[in-house]
Design a protein around this nucleic acid. Sequence first.
DNA 1: ACATTATTGAGGTGCGTACATCATATTGGA
DNA 2: TCCAATATGATGTACGCACCTCAATAATGT
Lengths: 345, 345
Amino acid sequence: MSKPTTKDLARAAGVSMATVDRVLNARSGVRKATVDRVNKAIKEINFVRDMAAANLARSKEYSLVFLLPDHDDEFIDLVRESVAEANASMAHERTNLRIIRAPANDPHRIAQMLDLLSAEQIDGVAIMAPETPQVRDSIARLDAQGVAVVAFESHQPTAKSAYYVGINNEAAGRTVGQLMARFTGERQGSVLVLTETMQARDSQERRLGFDAIMSKYAPRLRVRPSMETYGDPARTAKIIKAASENLPPVVGVYLMNHNIGETMKAIKMLGASLQTVIIGHELTPQTRECLLDGSMDAVITQDVGHLVRSSIRLLRAKAARMGTVASQERIRIEIILRENMPEDT
Amino acid sequence: MSKPTTKDLARAAGVSMATVDRVLNARSGVRKATVDRVNKAIKEINFVRDMAAANLARSKEYSLVFLLPDHDDEFIDLVRESVAEANASMAHERTNLRIIRAPANDPHRIAQMLDLLSAEQIDGVAIMAPETPQVRDSIARLDAQGVAVVAFESHQPTAKSAYYVGINNEAAGRTVGQLMARFTGERQGSVLVLTETMQARDSQERRLGFDAIMSKYAPRLRVRPSMETYGDPARTAKIIKAASENLPPVVGVYLMNHNIGETMKAIKMLGASLQTVIIGHELTPQTRECLLDGSMDAVITQDVGHLVRSSIRLLRAKAARMGTVASQERIRIEIILRENMPEDT
DNA sequence: ACATTATTGAGGTGCGTACATCATATTGGA
DNA sequence: TCCAATATGATGTACGCACCTCAATAATGT
């Protein structure tokens, strides 16, 4: 016979549908013994609740919010794009998405915006923001209100209710390290590491992983201290120029910063040898172009669309008290060379 | 106001719900002018059909079938696992999955099994089988019956109704080539290519891509003709022994065959130098172990879970005449090193 | 044993759609 | 202009579940 329904469950448990309903929705007024009996029956007849029908009956719409930094870099652009795309396709599944923006370095403002969400009827929030006490407290408040929360691309380790969606940055750094070690062959020289700021936790973690592998597999190379660009093109150019004027020669560059346009321009202007191995993060129009023209050798990235969809699934599941498929939510660290670069988007 | 329903649509179009229903489900008995009027109203009020409710009302269960080769290698194992997992999680979405097996080299049997499916009430089939006239005809018959078909991991170019789900094998071969070229540094020597059989189309495509890159980026290396193992351990050992006894020294091995256990054993027995770069396909327990112990340098793979889920989504969408999110269905060519290896499964 | 209170059952309505039936309206053609 | 064919409307039931009310029953305390 086909899928058991609540009716079948009621019969199997020897109770009425009203009681089944009370148990399924964790309503009060049911003796423990009865609850157990129903749960036992659920297992016995292998009952799975039809969430589509349930949501229909509830006439419930899930509202999810993405809180993103209010500056624009190519990564954020990709996220916004993916959210918009997901929003279109999730309309069928009674889910609507919204993006709100907040200055990344203003914890109070972020917390305030999160608190404002509490007032609305929001079911879940994906938060991309640095960890601060204010944000942590706001997450706790959301959690207390039953709002699902995931930490999007940014760890919130002290907010235990916020599941982290993103890659392991230390492993990502190790991956870059391994590629750098191997792509540089037997060459000797120095390796530059560029980042927007080492304040960011992900930069620190990546650097950690990178150093570990480099010292193990490429002790012949001298990895220089991280150079911070602060997103300033002029500063970036100066830094690179200064670094390239010193010996030993630069045989590798690890770009951890996002908007690499200026950086690559500076590097190209110096006429860096083709031997210089350049590896960066995130597959964006810019890095894509650099891979194609050969100026970059590899990009370590994550599937932003997957990241977004995964967050949505997790939030929805939490909000609807459903289960998830763990393997589907694993975010992989992807290595992109020119040869395996996906064609579109 | 919230989502418009069919009732709103009926009012907006100035027709009855019955007519709306006829238009939405493309039933006959509606004048063209009326159809247009309804379609116009759909756009005006931005009506989107609630597929959850529609499927509920239809009380339709989608039955999808995976036709897989009946031999067992680790890739097939992964597929079976993923299908089982998906089946569990798709129960919520009124979809049930089934696997049937057929000998890969018996086109008649495969065609026969496909034809048998026509008798049952199947909504879609994912076919993993070599392209043959028999299979092509069966696919055409399925298509004529309104059964959705995707070509799973195996091109069916002449069956235009079967959308291909899988990676671009030529690009995969190019990717292996690029890694081989770079990982071997400046070393000189020969490169072995092992495969089960060069009969398989994917082997040919991979070899093609591999050679293109190798001749371009690593002309210093001599890529040997493909050696076929026919899945025979003894033969494999012999081949490898013979190859390693000839000069120039083997600096790289490209393993296109699936069950690499025996192959790796043979290679290890010869005490191949650590310098030998070994690259293979598919992340399985075996290759995973080889990556961890350093005996393999890289694995080019695809996310089997994603492959399966993508097939399911495509089949379901086709069966329910819905749209799909193209970007979600793109199967990426993944490069796995020890550093970015996913932890589980 | 009686009053309370805690459980449980029965039944109804609604969610947004599919689908079938029968009645009515519109249209084309002779 | 009238008939038949076709197009549309009205209505009811079903899908699997949520959620509400009211009544009936069982368990509890005193």
